[in-house]
Each structure stands twice: as structure tokens, then as C-alpha cells.
Amino acid sequence: MKQYDIAIIGGGGAGLTAALYAARARRSTIVFEGKVTGGQIATTDLVENFPGFPEGVNGFDLAMAMLQQAERFGTEMAYEPVQSLERLPGGSFRITTDGGAYEARAVIYTAGADYNRLGIPGETELTGKGVSWCATCDAAFFAGQEVAVVGGGDAALDEGLFVTRYASKVHVIHRRDTLRASQILQERSFANPRMSFTWDTVVERINGTDQVTSLDLRNVKTGETTNLPVGAIFIFIGQTPNSHLLKGLAELDAGGHALVDLEMRTSLPGLFAAGDIRTKAARQLIAAAGDGATAAISAEHYLNALDRAAEHEGTLATAR
């Protein structure tokens, strides 16, 4: 079994920053990423709220730069989905992936969150045929067509605005009559002639056989049902934390986020959590990166204490 000082589960903004700090502390560091490196930023067209980039930066380019920076100081990457995380009797951790087993003295859990699904008929059947969670990947296939974006948060408006580059009209379908998104995104969306808002409305069914052709909508206040012809539906209705591996190891809040203190320590010694996975996260890249740095510094303190205890044991043994 390969051994490391610090294993980081998740290669998004929190994980790659934690890796940078851990590797610079000269701790042997490995990052596990089973999906797209960079996590949510990797599919973001333009990141405008990460300091240091006055004109904004492409999310994928930023993710690749973070990866290079972490690797430059010796971080190893394992592009393998983690299947289980266990605590061993000695206090270290075993990480099992579809590629093998690894042991680490400390773990920083940065697995983030995945976009929620609507759970309605047609959603699974038409995924990749007009149902999408990645506007930057798929918007170009709907040039000149009308499309829908579901949701009222930053992701919905940000991605919706991106889609207006291609689509003739973007219908934002939101179940309430106010948006949760940041003011600047709301202002831009209301000013964009290609953005159209459908309030107090939910999608009940996605229609189509080989590709999406229309949506069945229902107004939650009047009960009125309508059909909206669109070629695509982009779904941004919140996220669910990827915390299943933490169950039984660390305490979670009611929403499934890891409970941590200000040093990103979970309830289990040696296990840290950072980024969107942790309770009360700001769910912003810069906050995730900050959490990652804090978690790596805490993990370093934890390992230092273990090393000192081991040395002390050694001194005692020699004296005896």
C-alpha cells in the first residue's frame, strides 16, 4: 500500500490549494480526483470574482494553473474515484479507489458538491440530448434556438448569460418570484434582451425522443400548465454535498455538510474538510481556496504533533 503524509480527496479549488500548501510544507501529498480536475470552476466560462484577475479568467485555465502550481511542489495526482475512506487502528487512514489502496496519516476532504437533478420524466432519458448541467460544454449546439435555464441562483444566471451568446432566447424558469443570484448578475440578466424570466413556475416534464423538443411547465400560484418549445434545458437548482464517504467517520450537519471548526478540523482527529463540503461554506472559489490553505496548515500542525510524540517515545525508549 502506498503511504502518504496527507491525502486530499477532491481536486477542486479547495483540494488543489490544500495540495499546494501541503506540498510546500514538504509533506508527501496525493490528490484524488475521479471527475474533472478543478471541480465546478472547470466548467465555468469566466471567473470574475477571483482576486488578481481584473479582466476575469477562464475557469478551466485557472484550474489547470492551480494544478500545475500544486504539482510543481511535488503533489501527486491520482485520477481515480475514491470508493471508501476508513480509519485504521493506528489512527491513519486507508483510501480505496478503483485503482488501488493508499494509506495517509491525515486526510483533507474536499469532495465538494454536485448539481441537483430535477427528478422529473425525461431528465435522465434526454441527458446529453438537450438536458445539460454544463452550459459552457453544450451551449454551442443550440445556436439560434430557444433554450431554458432552470434556477434562480448565481449559477443559473451566469450560465444563462453565457448561453445567450448562442441561443436566440434563454427562458429562465424559477419557482419563486425573486432571485437569489448576486445583484450584478441580476442587473446583467434583466438588461439582456435575450434573457426572459418565467416566475413562480416549475418544470414537470421534459419532452422529446431523440432530443429535447419542449417542456411542460406549471405555475405554482395559479396551477396553470403550459408547454414551452425549447431545444435544451440547463439545470442549476442547487447542489448536494458529496459527503457519503464521511458518514460514520465525522459529524455532518442536517444538509450533509461536514461540521468543522475554524481550523477546518472535523470531529475525527486527522480528518479535515474544506470548501463546499463543509458546513456554512460561502460556496465561492476564493473561500474554498482559503479553506484549503487553512486545512493544510491544520493538517501540518497535526502531523507535527504526531512526529513530536513519536520522537518523545523514541527518547524514552532509548533512555530505558
Binding site: 441527458t127 446529453g128 440530448k129 438537450g130 445539460s132 454544463c134 460544454c137 453544450d138 454551442a140 449546439f141 443550440f142 431523440d210 432530443q211 435544451a232
Partner: peptide
């Protein structure tokens, strides 16, 4: 490359990449 080739992606109904 789906930017440079339209016919094959259209024939196979490619609406999402990577595929």
C-alpha cells in the same frame, strides 16, 4: 472537432461534449 465539422455530429445527434 465539432466546431470544424457539422455533418457527423448532426447525424449522431451530438448535443453535449465530450461524447
Amino acid at each position: 472537432n465539432t466546431d470544424e465539422n457539422a455533418n457527423v455530429p448532426s447525424k449522431y445527434g451530438i448535443r453535449s461534449i465530450p461524447s
